[in-house]
Amino acid sequence: MKTAIIVFPGSNSEEETLRAVNEAGGAGRLVWWFEGPQALRGFDAFILPGGFAYEDRIRAGAVAARDPIVAAVIDAATHGAPTLGICNGAQVLVETGLVPGTGPVGRPQAALAPNAAGHFIDTYAEMVLSAPPERCIFTRHLEPGARVPAWASHGEGRYAFRDDQTRRAVQEQQLLVFRYAGENFNGAELNCAALTNPAGNALAIMPHPERVGWRYQQPQRAKLDVRGDREAYLRPYGGNRLFALFAQVFAR
Protein backbone atom coordinates (compact mmCIF):
# COMPACT_ATOMS: atom_id res chain seq x y z
CA MET A 1 0.00 0.00 0.00
CA LYS A 2 1.53 3.30 -1.08
CA THR A 3 1.44 5.98 1.56
CA ALA A 4 1.58 9.70 0.82
CA ILE A 5 3.02 11.91 3.54
CA ILE A 6 1.74 15.38 2.79
CA VAL A 7 4.18 18.24 3.37
CA PHE A 8 2.79 21.73 3.92
CA PRO A 9 4.72 24.98 4.22
CA GLY A 10 5.72 24.73 7.88
CA SER A 11 5.61 20.93 8.30
CA ASN A 12 8.63 19.73 10.28
CA SER A 13 8.16 16.02 11.01
CA GLU A 14 7.83 14.61 7.54
CA GLU A 15 11.29 12.99 7.43
CA GLU A 16 10.84 11.18 10.75
CA THR A 17 7.40 10.03 9.68
CA LEU A 18 8.67 8.79 6.33
CA ARG A 19 11.49 6.97 8.07
CA ALA A 20 9.09 5.34 10.54
CA VAL A 21 6.72 4.24 7.77
CA ASN A 22 9.48 2.79 5.64
CA GLU A 23 11.27 1.19 8.58
CA ALA A 24 8.03 -0.54 9.46
CA GLY A 25 7.79 -1.96 5.95
CA GLY A 26 5.52 0.61 4.36
CA ALA A 27 6.08 2.35 1.03
CA GLY A 28 6.03 6.03 1.88
CA ARG A 29 6.72 9.07 -0.25
CA LEU A 30 6.67 12.77 0.52
CA VAL A 31 4.12 14.75 -1.47
CA TRP A 32 4.34 18.54 -1.35
CA TRP A 33 1.20 20.62 -1.07
CA PHE A 34 1.99 22.51 -4.27
CA GLU A 35 1.96 19.30 -6.28
CA GLY A 36 -1.81 19.51 -5.93
CA PRO A 37 -4.53 16.89 -5.57
CA GLN A 38 -3.54 15.13 -8.80
CA ALA A 39 -0.25 14.10 -7.17
CA LEU A 40 -2.20 11.84 -4.82
CA ARG A 41 -3.35 9.52 -7.59
CA GLY A 42 -2.04 6.02 -7.01
CA PHE A 43 -1.72 6.39 -3.25
CA ASP A 44 -3.79 4.21 -0.97
CA ALA A 45 -3.11 5.76 2.42
CA PHE A 46 -2.31 9.24 3.71
CA ILE A 47 -0.41 10.75 6.59
CA LEU A 48 -0.50 14.41 7.59
CA PRO A 49 2.67 14.92 9.66
CA GLY A 50 3.49 17.26 12.51
CA GLY A 51 4.74 20.81 12.30
CA PHE A 52 3.22 24.23 11.86
CA ALA A 53 1.42 24.20 8.50
CA TYR A 54 1.01 27.73 7.18
CA GLU A 55 2.74 28.95 10.37
CA ASP A 56 -0.44 28.13 12.34
CA ARG A 57 -1.87 31.35 10.92
CA ILE A 58 -5.43 32.01 12.13
CA ARG A 59 -5.05 28.90 14.35
CA ALA A 60 -3.30 25.53 14.10
CA GLY A 61 -4.56 23.48 11.17
CA ALA A 62 -7.23 25.94 10.04
CA VAL A 63 -5.65 27.00 6.75
CA ALA A 64 -4.23 23.60 5.75
CA ALA A 65 -7.68 22.09 6.34
CA ARG A 66 -8.91 24.24 3.45
CA ASP A 67 -6.01 23.36 1.13
CA PRO A 68 -7.05 21.63 -2.14
CA ILE A 69 -4.69 18.71 -1.48
CA VAL A 70 -6.42 18.10 1.86
CA ALA A 71 -9.79 18.14 0.13
CA ALA A 72 -8.51 15.21 -1.95
CA VAL A 73 -7.31 13.41 1.19
CA ILE A 74 -10.69 13.91 2.86
CA ASP A 75 -12.45 12.65 -0.25
CA ALA A 76 -10.30 9.51 -0.22
CA ALA A 77 -10.80 9.09 3.52
CA THR A 78 -14.56 9.28 3.20
CA HIS A 79 -14.22 6.42 0.72
CA GLY A 80 -12.28 4.35 3.24
CA ALA A 81 -8.61 5.24 2.67
CA PRO A 82 -6.53 4.86 5.86
CA THR A 83 -5.70 8.41 6.96
CA LEU A 84 -3.50 9.39 9.86
CA GLY A 85 -2.85 12.86 11.24
CA ILE A 86 -0.07 13.33 13.76
CA CYS A 87 0.10 16.47 15.91
CA ASN A 88 -0.36 19.29 13.41
CA GLY A 89 -1.83 16.66 11.08
CA ALA A 90 -4.35 15.82 13.80
CA GLN A 91 -5.19 19.51 14.10
CA VAL A 92 -5.82 19.57 10.34
CA LEU A 93 -8.06 16.47 10.41
CA VAL A 94 -10.08 17.89 13.29
CA GLU A 95 -10.43 21.24 11.52
CA THR A 96 -11.82 19.48 8.44
CA GLY A 97 -14.50 17.82 10.54
CA LEU A 98 -13.44 14.35 9.32
CA VAL A 99 -12.55 13.54 12.93
CA PRO A 100 -14.48 12.91 15.10
CA GLY A 101 -16.93 13.09 12.21
CA THR A 102 -20.04 13.37 14.33
CA GLY A 103 -21.28 16.21 12.11
CA PRO A 104 -20.99 17.07 8.43
CA VAL A 105 -17.48 17.10 6.98
CA GLY A 106 -16.42 20.73 6.59
CA ARG A 107 -17.78 21.75 9.99
CA PRO A 108 -15.40 21.11 12.89
CA GLN A 109 -17.01 19.31 15.80
CA ALA A 110 -13.90 19.47 17.96
CA ALA A 111 -10.74 21.49 18.32
CA LEU A 112 -7.16 21.22 19.43
CA ALA A 113 -7.28 24.30 21.60
CA PRO A 114 -4.31 25.98 23.31
CA ASN A 115 -2.97 23.96 26.24
CA ALA A 116 -4.65 24.77 29.53
CA ALA A 117 -1.26 25.74 30.93
CA GLY A 118 -1.06 28.52 28.34
CA HIS A 119 2.30 27.48 26.97
CA PHE A 120 4.04 24.96 24.71
CA ILE A 121 4.61 21.54 26.28
CA ASP A 122 7.33 19.11 25.26
CA THR A 123 7.24 15.80 27.13
CA TYR A 124 7.35 12.02 26.88
CA ALA A 125 3.78 10.73 27.11
CA GLU A 126 2.47 7.20 27.07
CA MET A 127 -0.93 6.56 25.55
CA VAL A 128 -3.41 3.87 26.57
CA LEU A 129 -5.69 2.23 24.05
CA SER A 130 -9.13 3.23 25.28
CA ALA A 131 -11.43 1.75 22.65
CA PRO A 132 -11.76 -1.84 21.49
CA PRO A 133 -8.79 -2.52 19.17
CA GLU A 134 -11.06 -3.30 16.23
CA ARG A 135 -12.74 0.14 16.53
CA CYS A 136 -9.99 1.78 14.47
CA ILE A 137 -8.18 0.31 11.49
CA PHE A 138 -4.82 1.45 12.90
CA THR A 139 -5.21 -0.27 16.27
CA ARG A 140 -6.87 -3.52 15.37
CA HIS A 141 -3.64 -5.51 15.90
CA LEU A 142 -3.00 -4.03 19.36
CA GLU A 143 -4.03 -5.86 22.49
CA PRO A 144 -6.86 -4.29 24.55
CA GLY A 145 -5.55 -1.57 26.84
CA ALA A 146 -2.17 -1.50 25.06
CA ARG A 147 0.26 1.25 26.06
CA VAL A 148 2.11 3.02 23.27
CA PRO A 149 4.85 5.56 23.93
CA ALA A 150 4.88 8.88 22.13
CA TRP A 151 6.32 12.34 22.47
CA ALA A 152 3.95 15.25 23.05
CA SER A 153 5.21 18.49 21.63
CA HIS A 154 2.53 21.10 21.17
CA GLY A 155 1.11 24.43 22.20
CA GLU A 156 -2.38 23.64 20.91
CA GLY A 157 -3.08 20.05 21.90
CA ARG A 158 -6.06 20.27 24.21
CA TYR A 159 -8.90 18.29 22.71
CA ALA A 160 -12.15 20.21 23.14
CA PHE A 161 -15.60 19.29 21.87
CA ARG A 162 -18.10 21.60 20.30
CA ASP A 163 -20.97 20.67 22.61
CA ASP A 164 -22.36 17.99 24.90
CA GLN A 165 -23.89 16.16 21.96
CA THR A 166 -20.48 15.72 20.35
CA ARG A 167 -18.88 14.72 23.64
CA ARG A 168 -21.59 12.12 24.18
CA ALA A 169 -21.29 10.81 20.61
CA VAL A 170 -17.52 10.46 20.98
CA GLN A 171 -18.01 8.33 24.07
CA GLU A 172 -21.00 6.32 22.86
CA GLN A 173 -19.43 5.54 19.49
CA GLN A 174 -16.07 4.77 21.13
CA LEU A 175 -14.23 7.29 18.98
CA LEU A 176 -11.74 8.09 21.73
CA VAL A 177 -8.99 5.67 20.76
CA PHE A 178 -6.08 6.74 22.97
CA ARG A 179 -6.01 8.52 26.30
CA TYR A 180 -2.86 9.78 27.97
CA ALA A 181 -1.67 7.21 30.49
CA GLY A 182 -0.46 9.72 33.04
CA GLU A 183 -1.53 13.16 34.15
CA ASN A 184 -3.72 15.31 31.96
CA PHE A 185 -0.86 17.68 31.16
CA ASN A 186 -2.58 19.74 28.48
CA GLY A 187 -6.12 19.86 29.88
CA ALA A 188 -7.68 17.78 27.08
CA GLU A 189 -11.31 16.83 27.59
CA LEU A 190 -11.62 13.17 28.59
CA ASN A 191 -7.79 13.14 28.74
CA CYS A 192 -8.00 12.49 25.01
CA ALA A 193 -4.82 11.88 23.00
CA ALA A 194 -6.32 10.51 19.77
CA LEU A 195 -9.72 10.34 18.10
CA THR A 196 -10.98 8.28 15.21
CA ASN A 197 -13.96 8.80 12.89
CA PRO A 198 -17.14 6.70 12.93
CA ALA A 199 -15.83 4.54 10.05
CA GLY A 200 -12.62 3.93 12.00
CA ASN A 201 -10.29 4.58 9.04
CA ALA A 202 -8.97 7.98 10.15
CA LEU A 203 -6.97 8.69 13.28
CA ALA A 204 -6.05 12.12 14.65
CA ILE A 205 -3.30 11.50 17.18
CA MET A 206 -1.81 14.42 19.08
CA PRO A 207 1.55 13.12 20.41
CA HIS A 208 4.25 11.89 18.04
CA PRO A 209 4.82 8.11 17.97
CA GLU A 210 7.50 8.61 15.29
CA ARG A 211 9.66 10.60 17.72
CA VAL A 212 10.09 7.64 20.05
CA GLY A 213 10.39 4.98 17.39
CA TRP A 214 13.86 3.80 18.31
CA ARG A 215 15.41 2.66 21.57
CA TYR A 216 17.82 5.59 21.70
CA GLN A 217 14.84 7.99 21.71
CA GLN A 218 13.35 6.42 24.84
CA PRO A 219 13.61 7.70 28.38
CA GLN A 220 16.72 6.69 30.26
CA ARG A 221 15.19 3.64 31.96
CA ALA A 222 14.40 2.00 28.61
CA LYS A 223 17.91 2.71 27.36
CA LEU A 224 19.53 1.20 30.44
CA ASP A 225 17.89 -2.15 29.59
CA VAL A 226 20.17 -2.50 26.57
CA ARG A 227 23.29 -0.84 27.91
CA GLY A 228 26.30 -1.89 25.86
CA ASP A 229 24.21 -3.48 23.11
CA ARG A 230 24.70 -1.12 20.17
CA GLU A 231 22.35 -3.00 17.84
CA ALA A 232 19.50 -3.05 20.32
CA TYR A 233 20.11 0.64 20.97
CA LEU A 234 19.48 1.46 17.30
CA ARG A 235 16.61 -1.02 16.83
CA PRO A 236 13.01 0.21 16.31
CA TYR A 237 11.12 0.20 19.56
CA GLY A 238 8.23 1.93 21.31
CA GLY A 239 6.32 4.29 19.05
CA ASN A 240 7.48 2.35 16.03
CA ARG A 241 5.27 -0.45 17.21
CA LEU A 242 2.37 1.68 16.10
CA PHE A 243 3.93 2.18 12.68
CA ALA A 244 4.59 -1.54 12.39
CA LEU A 245 0.88 -2.04 12.97
CA PHE A 246 0.12 0.65 10.41
CA ALA A 247 2.34 -1.23 8.00
CA GLN A 248 0.26 -4.34 8.58
CA VAL A 249 -2.78 -2.29 7.69
CA PHE A 250 -1.09 -0.91 4.62
CA ALA A 251 0.15 -4.34 3.56
CA ARG A 252 -3.28 -5.90 3.46
Binding site: I58, R59, A62, P108, A111, A113, A160, F161, R162
Partner: peptide, 10 residues
Amino acid sequence: RDLLANPAYQ
Protein backbone atom coordinates in the same frame (compact mmCIF):
# COMPACT_ATOMS: atom_id res chain seq x y z
CA ARG B 1 -17.02 32.26 10.53
CA ASP B 2 -15.73 28.64 10.70
CA LEU B 3 -12.40 29.57 9.14
CA LEU B 4 -11.78 32.38 11.60
CA ALA B 5 -13.12 30.72 14.76
CA ASN B 6 -13.46 27.12 15.84
CA PRO B 7 -16.74 26.90 17.77
CA ALA B 8 -15.37 24.13 19.98
CA TYR B 9 -13.36 26.69 21.93
CA GLN B 10 -13.85 30.11 20.40
